[in-house]
Design a protein around this nucleic acid. Structure first.
Lengths: 233, 233
DNA sequence: GGCACGGTGATTGCATGCACTTTTCCAGAA
DNA sequence: TTCTGGAAAAGTGCATGCAATCACCGTGCC
């Protein structure tokens, strides 16, 4: 889905709830398998069940929650297989974006990418995981935008957001920061050369490595039903 | 002209409405830009506004309708640029599926693909556009399944469905049928050889050609706001 | 001991009503 | 005539209520 063509700027209650719940899921605050009770959510957000239902519908379409008929909604439980398929898709999507970026980025976009990338080298030296994570997100977003293809960008951003819960903490692996920067460097260099094939390959390899690094956590943190009531507080 | 299919109360009302409305949009019965008034839809389907709203939410997530806060919903208006980006994405997605299929299809899947493909040669000789269109859909679906990647399959199917309104009637171009089969043949041959790169390229080229053939119609049939009130009746 | 079955509670699905936002249209003035 | 202000109308957003459905569970039978 693909979805969420709904206007981002809208301040409707439903959209705020969608963002809020999606955020809780993406950040891992809500665990896979955890129940999303309509009345509880309604009470928590101080609204009625109607907007809650609508929000759950959106989230379901986004693939973040799973709705079982007459059995309530839960945070989507992703199997290892499906997780792997998403990571693989992500690698391919990023490869496309990088290839297109190498072929289509404007001069300004190229300069901005290169500058940001060089500036981030300092973050690596400082070992600033948090700041680097922010830069990392921005870096990839530049690649998506640079592809100059709205639909691919949409697919990529959506897939990335669904993978977010499994990507976090990847930079806590020792040495990951420096390696990430070097992988980015390969991509940037290829893009500056206008070498689409090389940029695509570098981006695919980069994501594949991230995927493996993340798979460690996915394995450590089992994707089972966690019903800690305190976690919802 | 009225809604021929009256709702059977068996399945969930919302899902049936989603299908019905999506069908009307995909087949071009509802034109881009046309307003989707909640009360009118509610009256037409003989339900209250609540399920209508939910259905519109789903359709919005599917990208088929556009919801403006407090301003109602319209059939999604696709600009030429966005349409082009979707076709380009489709070509890339199909290329991925074909490449993966070449590498991963089981023996059974390969045999089925080849057999169906050879059988369809008769449809080309007969000039049976309708039947060939059905086969064509099945052919591509086999490619998506053969990729053995649930997420890519999902992205591809979704994108394909969003392009459906603009793909129809492509086979009415003279000679398109035979050419399509030859393009399929290139893909099948590459897959049977297990040549992922060749299969990907053949699939990308195939979709690009379809995209150009379809662009003709998109140009002929302008994507502007059509508010014919009688059309909604 | 296991399975079938019916009661009960919880939860969903839908209808309806009201309030708020947006649009439209008309009156009055420049 | 054209522009502006504002009020009415239209339509959406959300709250509330009710009924149907399903899951859960205890009891009785095999």
């Amino acid at each position: 889905m693909p979805g969420k063509r709904s206007l981002v700027r809208s301040g409707t209650t439903v959209d705020q709830m969608v963002r809020a719940i999606a955020d809780r899921i993406v950040t891992g605050y809500l665990r896979p398998g955890e129940r999303l009770d309509e009345v509880s959510l309604a009470a928590r957000f101080e609204v009625s069940r109607t907007p809650v239902r609508e929000a759950l519908g959106h989230l379901s379409a986004m693939g973040l929650v799973e709705r079982r008929p007459n059995r309530g909604a839960i945070v989507a439980v992703v199997t290892q297989e499906h997780l792997a398929s998403m990571f693989e898709s992500m690698a391919e999507l990023e490869a496309i974006c990088a290839r297109f970026s190498a072929e289509r980025m404007t001069g300004g976009e190229r300069r901005a990418l290169e500058m940001e990338h060089q500036a981030s080298a300092r973050l690596v030296q400082l070992g600033a995981e948090e700041d680097y994570e922010y830069f990392n997100t921005e870096f990839h977003s530049r690649l998506y935008r640079g592809a100059h293809n709205a639909h691919i960008q949409d697919l990529t951003v959506t897939t990335r957001s669904r993978l977010a819960p499994f990507r976090r903490a990847q930079f806590m692996l020792p040495g990951r920061l420096a390696k990430s920067w070097q992988e980015h460097d390969l991509i940037v260099t290829a893009i500056m050369r206008g070498d689409g094939a090389a940029a695509g390959k570098a981006a695919r390899d980069h994501v594949s490595i991230v995927s493996e690094a993340s798979a460690v956590f996915a394995a450590v943190e089992p994707v089972t039903s966690v019903l800690s009531r305190s976690a919802r507080q």
